[in-house]
Design a protein around this nucleic acid. Structure first.
Lengths: 144, 144
DNA sequence: GTATATGCAAATCTTTTGCACCCCT
DNA sequence: AGGGGTGCAAAAGATTTGCATATAC
């Protein structure tokens, strides 16, 4: 228990942040979540500590800027955040249009396309961001 | 001049909308724009007619739902809209991180990936949405 | 004439910010 | 002790909505 929280405190100090209770708790919640979470979802999950929503936002922004978290945009009005488990591990997500479930996708062959785009548009330093949407297995059963 | 506006009026009536002045003007602005526009950008461009921003939003949402416009999400806080020139013409966009310029991308080989994802995740009916970001030629010159 | 669309104002929702106080280090 | 971090409240910015009036058909 204590050692688990130490892990987050150490991670914070390594990135020149003070290891405060709100930050440790937020990291714990994100580490344990199987999918990226919105600020509001995180705020609910840490409600036992009465952490202010503004603190959640400030923490998420700072940790994402420092590279401790990934900021995930899925094309709706929310920014989501996920614990970065492997440094720079490149992946994408698929979100269920019906229930909002999000699953990680590890296939990606867009780098070849990027060089074609560079050639045709003159853009350089091309990054990409992909979101898949669909209907998850559970929701497919409900509908039919 | 009149015939050009007739084109939008006809398009509106074909989709069971009344051909009002605000709607015709909004369609004209989007048709003439080389890139997708935000509600606020459209509102500025139609400022000669004193169209309310709420009307712009309502028009954009209805026309996008009806399939007359494409709703474009580029991972920032704005929804953008583009005139649909060819029915269901599938494409993506690249946006310059420096000046915000948006260019259309017509390459897309993600359909093959979609079937792999279906196999590994159980999701069905998979759509995708891709945003490329980079530095456009003009901005690359400025920086160097 | 009637249903629909618009303008105006107010509300909603996510996210940010100012400021006084608190607590890591 | 000192400076960053937090809570609280208010603000900001995109988008939506209620309602009375205006307009297309």
């Amino acid at each position: 228990m204590v050692s688990a929280l130490q892990k987050y405190a150490t991670l914070l100090r390594q990135n020149e942040f003070k290891a405060t209770q709100p930050r440790v708790k937020i990291l714990e919640v994100l580490d344990k979540s199987p999918q990226p979470l919105t600020a509001s979802e995180i705020h609910e999950k840490v409600s036992t500590l009465d952490i202010d929503l503004a603190t959640v936002y400030r923490t998420l922004n700072k940790l994402a800027d420092a590279g401790v978290l990934n900021r995930v945009e899925l094309g709706d009005e929310f920014s989501r955040f996920e614990y970065k488990r492997v440094a720079n591990h490149h992946h994408h997500h698929i979100i269920c249009d019906s229930c909002g479930k999000i699953v990680e996708i590890n296939l990606c062959n867009l780098d070849a396309i990027a060089s074609d785009i560079a050639k045709s548009t003159g853009f350089t330093n091309i990054q990409h961001q992909v979101v898949f949407r669909g209907c998850c297995e559970r929701c497919a059963l409900k509908v039919s």
